[in-house]
Simulated scan of single mutants.
Amino acid sequence: MDTASRTAIVTGGSRGIGRAVAVRLAAAGQDVAVVYSSNAKEADAAVGEIEAAGARGIALQADVADEDTIAGAFDTVEQRLGPIDVVVNAAGIMALQPIRELDLAQLDRQLRTNVRGTFVTAKEAARRIRPGGAFVAFSTSVTRLHLPAYGAYAATKGAVEALIPILAKEMGDRDVTVNAVAPGPTATELFFEGKSQQVIDRIAGLSPMNRLGTPEDVAELVAFLAGPGRWINGQIVFANGGAA
């Protein structure tokens, strides 16, 4: 598929997997709006990488769980970059605690960003994406790997997985595909935070390739779903190097 003259929005696009996705879409010829929560410096750096890839880029601050600020961000994208073709909701937070020790305030934070944020972004995307476009959300391979301490995070992503096939059916008559990508352990700041090298090595060993994924590994899949992968719809697609 020729993805030139297309416009994409990537939430959580200032760092990690979201940033790699934004740059990869730009390399495919799509103009990209990076929606970020708080780190303006990183968002501006991401825009610099988008422009270096030959596309137009802008950075917009918004809370994905707030429908007014997300609607405003979508308005700005349409005004500055044009009609929206692709929305990738990569924004998310993760706090690890055993269920017996779970801080319910942390659970509420994750529910707000990971579940409500996905619904708010999906709702706006469903109203705006042009025919032939795509919506890509993020789940996690932990919903299948069942790693200790990931209970709250996996539960929020289970809700995302429930949303995807329903939204795909609702969007089918507009020729818009809806999928979620479920990365395995990936080398990002979010993953490394609070983990010892021993734990990192053990988790990397879950894959027969004996390594962590990279943000670029995941970005390749997102770019396919957001471009030529038109017959993949309503799916949760795992990108984890065979981790089990």
Results as ranks from 00 to 15, higher is better:
residue 237 V to N: 06
residue 216 E to P: 05
residue 180 A to F: 10
residue 107 L to K: 03
residue 64 V to W: 00
residue 51 E to S: 06
residue 234 G to R: 09
residue 94 M to V: 09
residue 194 G to E: 03
residue 26 A to L: 04
residue 224 F to N: 10
residue 219 A to M: 04
residue 150 Y to M: 09
residue 112 R to H: 03
residue 96 L to P: 06
residue 242 G to W: 09
residue 111 L to Y: 01
residue 89 N to Y: 00
residue 201 D to K: 13
residue 76 T to M: 00
residue 199 V to P: 00
residue 216 E to Y: 03
residue 240 N to G: 12
residue 198 Q to I: 00
residue 168 A to W: 03
residue 126 A to N: 06
residue 66 D to P: 00
residue 207 S to Y: 10
residue 13 G to C: 06
residue 155 A to S: 14
residue 7 T to C: 14
residue 10 V to P: 01
residue 92 G to N: 05
residue 86 V to C: 09
residue 28 A to N: 13
residue 35 V to N: 08
residue 33 A to R: 15
residue 103 D to S: 14
residue 160 V to Q: 11
residue 73 A to T: 01
residue 46 A to K: 12
residue 198 Q to A: 12
residue 42 E to K: 11
residue 9 I to T: 09
residue 102 L to T: 01
residue 149 A to Q: 12
residue 203 I to K: 07
residue 174 R to G: 04
residue 153 Y to F: 14
residue 6 R to F: 01
residue 217 D to R: 12
residue 201 D to G: 02
residue 145 L to T: 08
residue 224 F to L: 14
residue 101 E to K: 14
residue 118 T to D: 08
residue 23 V to Y: 08
residue 132 G to E: 07
residue 13 G to W: 05
residue 93 I to H: 05
residue 203 I to M: 11
residue 3 T to R: 12
residue 91 A to L: 06
residue 218 V to A: 05
residue 93 I to S: 09
residue 22 A to K: 13
